[in-house]
């Protein structure tokens, strides 16, 4: 038993030495290097602006808004859409909605669930600030689970980074 435990210690040591030997190359050391690198991998201006995949809550009122990669900031197009949605919701006070937050498929599943919730909440807060009662709005995140466009390309991903306003009654 003692030998057994020792053998484990030895193997761990060997593994650690081995790993240590081949690790140094890929390691970046400063946080500054990271910041510049990540900034280039996550463009801030890739929110979708077209109308493909879009549905309408009412005449001329789009049901969805789009986001840039990894972002939950509302673009000016998004706030314009949400402003119309809030006018419509205030004019139809018995309507309730659920805001479905989504992410594209180029991210880890769990982070995307959180990101979808953050995007839906951004839209919800905008509707509330425009006078829609908070108790009429629910949010749900689907992360990357329900793409609007199933293709694996830049256009599809931009269409999938979205929050969709869905009537619940």
């Amino acid at each position: 038993m003692l030998l057994n435990n020792l053998s484990k210690v030895i193997l761990v040591l060997i593994v650690t030495l081995f790993l240590g030997a081949c690790a140094t190359k890929q390691q970046a050391t400063t946080a500054t290097a990271t910041a510049t690198a990540t900034a280039t991998t996550a463009p801030t201006d890739d929110a979708y602006t077209g109308t493909e995949t879009v549905k309408y809550l009412a005449d001329g009122i789009s049901d969805r808004i789009f986001f840039a990669t990894n972002k939950s900031d509302l673009t000016s197009a998004a706030t314009a859409t949400l402003a119309k949605q809030s006018t419509y919701l205030k004019a139809n006070p018995t309507l309730n909605v659920v805001l479905e937050g989504h992410a594209d498929e180029r991210g880890t599943r769990e982070y995307n669930l959180a990101l979808g919730e953050r995007r839906a909440t951004a839209a919800k807060n905008y509707l509330i600030s425009n006078g829609v009662a908070a108790n009429r709005i629910k949010v749900i995140s689907y992360g990357k689970e329900k793409p609007a466009n199933p293709a694996s390309n830049v256009l599809a991903w931009s269409q999938n980074r979205r929050t969709v306003t869905v009537k619940t009654n």
Binding site: Q27, A28, A31, T34, A42
Partner: peptide
């Protein structure tokens, strides 16, 4: 994590 890129899971 301080390497280049994003890290998860």
């Amino acid at each position: 994590s301080f390497g280049e890129g994003l890290y998860g899971t």
